[in-house]
Design a protein around this nucleic acid. Structure first.
Length: 470
RNA sequence: GCCCCCAUCGUCUAUCGGUUAGGACAGGAGAUUCUCAUUCUUCAAAGCGGGGUUCGAUUCCCCGUGGGGGCACCA
């Protein structure tokens, strides 16, 4: 086992952002790749913004993505890990202890009721135009960060900063560094938005006399449209959204991995186990990536298509179970073998589970909607009413061979040829009559699955409706 | 305003000084199928600009420009 220890340190704000997901993922990948330890630490020092209810969003999203943590909250088997507690709100004693270390070293002072960290160097006052106030600058040596992704980055940290608020609570920069020390973190893998903050962290690390961990700042995910990084409000930003829409987590993992990393060459669809074995920090890109929901959807389709039929059906069942009763109950009530058969027809056709309810509605009962445009188009030419009647008769006739798609197709073709028509003269109108839709699985397979009686009565009922309108 | 990071098709990217600059998504055209989707064929599409270094730069360096991030008693 390697000595690598990485952590994902989210703040429970009620959302689990796709950028956070990727940060968690890259940490997890690195831990798994190196045989190290993946730690979950909850950064909930801001009592005003955090809430226990929000924690579930984090646990739930990580679990869905398959990112299991070795140390942290909810690791029941071994009590969480040896560096607990893992919620910062429960680590006040640790922060006070570390504060005393700094105090003993003469590196802190009080001002305006808050506790400040003192930088070393000559001081002078200067007016800051941006903040429109006078600030004290400190002439310090540049902090050097040897970033595993960016290379050498140098930045001058030239102002003292608050480490304990006047309300007595410690500030992010402080707790982040203290916990990384206390939890013996070896690699800090986080978003590039922290790169500029890192000089603060290195200054703190130096004050504690601790050798800094390896830093690795990963690029940000930019919003699909418009300027800036992706935020909670953008389309596709929330992990729970993908979950709700029935995306396959392995597809989401594969996609967001590729936003900033790739194995080299042309390969894109990679099983997570292979990503784990190939992943490494130096191969992570340095430039920000723009989110693309079309490519995400495509990746999802690839995974859907590749699923074994039974697995597809099982996952589809789970998806239906998440829907409101009016959308999912009928499907769930169906006979298991029948349900699997319907899913067998849907799997090669749909791009995502979210299409499933509309795509399969007519399989679960007689109360399915009819697409007006599809209906108008199907009825526009020929003699639809006659075709429907002929087909109903054919379907009802016990002599008609239902044993295979090919046999049924041959029967319909024979019917068509006898009248100088083609298969298409029946297919379109029959589809609208039986499914209410313009598109769907092959007409012969869905007729066979629905059964003679159900199809015939739908054909007749539809034809009767035409009579009234005409 | 100050500081930091980045820069190849519309988008995600391959290339680690010498290539007809490749792939994928999206887009166009076509083929196949009973519709649709898949699949297949095919078309269009890129090295931000200017200086260097080099026999040779997409690749290395500098300057611009553009994009992104940071500059809180948020994390």
């Amino acid at each position: 086992m390697s000595s690598v220890r990485v952590r994902f340190a989210p703040s429970p704000t009620g959302f689990f952002h796709i950028g956070s997901a990727r940060t968690a993922l890259f940490n997890w990948l690195y831990a798994r790749h190196t045989g190290g330890v993946f730690i979950l630490r909850i950064e909930d020092t801001d009592a005003a913004r955090n809430s226990d209810a929000y924690l579930d969003v984090i646990y739930q999203s990580l679990a869905w993505l398959g990112l299991n943590w070795d140390e942290g909250p909810r690791v029941d088997a071994n009590g969480g890990g040896e560096c607990g507690p893992y919620r910062q709100s429960e680590r006040g004693h640790v922060y006070r202890e570390y504060l005393e270390k700094l105090r003993a070293a003469g590196r802190v002072y009080e001002k305006d009721g808050a506790t400040w960290f003192r930088l070393l160097g000559e001081r002078h006052e200067v007016y800051d135009e941006h903040r429109q106030k006078t600030v004290t600058k400190v002439k310090t040596a540049p902090m050097v960060i040897d970033d595993a992704i960016r290379g050498r980055v140098e930045r001058v940290e030239d102002e003292d900063f608050v480490i304990f608020r006047s309300d007595g609570n410690p500030v992010f920069h402080f707790v982040n560094v203290v916990d990384d020390i206390a939890m013996r973190i070896t690699h800090v893998i986080r978003g590039e938005d922290h790169l500029s903050n890192t000089s603060k962290h290195v200054a703190l690390l130096e004050a504690f006399g601790v050798k800094p961990p390896v830093f690795a700042h990963i690029p940000l995910i930019l919003k699909q449209n418009g300027p800036g990084k992706m935020s909670k409000r953008d389309q596709g930003a929330l992990i729970e959204e993908y979950q709700k829409r029935g995306y396959l987590p392995e597809a989401v993992v594969n996609f967001i991995t590729l936003l900033g990393w790739n194995p080299g060459g042309d390969r894109e669809k990679l099983p997570v186990a292979e990503i784990v074995s190939l992943f490494d920090l130096p191969a992570v890109n340095q430039s920000n990536a723009r989110f693309d929901d079309k490519k995400m959807a495509h990746m999802n389709m690839l995974y859907l298509l590749a699923l074994p039929a039974a697995e597809f059906a099982a996952r589809a069942r789970t998806y239906f179970a998440t829907l409101p009763a009016e959308a999912g109950a009928a499907a769930l009530a169906a006979d298991a073998a029948y349900f699997e058969a319907v899913m067998g027809l849907a799997q090669p056709k749909i791009k995502g589970f979210e299409e499933l309810p509309a795509y399969t509605a007519y399989f679960w009962g007689e109360a399915y909607p009819t697409d007006e445009k599809a209906q108008a188009k199907a009825l526009a030419k020929g003699e639809p009413k006659a075709r429907l009647a002929e087909l109903a008769e054919l379907v009802r006739a016990p002599a008609t061979d239902f044993s295979s798609d090919a046999a049924l197709e041959a029967a319909i073709k024979a019917l068509a040829e006898a009248r100088g028509l083609g298969f298409g003269d029946y297919q379109g109108v029959a589809r609208v009559a039986v499914t209410g839709l313009a598109a769907g699985p092959s007409i012969t397979s869905l007729i066979r699955l629905l059964g003679r009686e159900r199809v015939a009565s739908r054909l007749e009922r539809f034809a009767a409706g035409l009579g009234r309108e005409a």
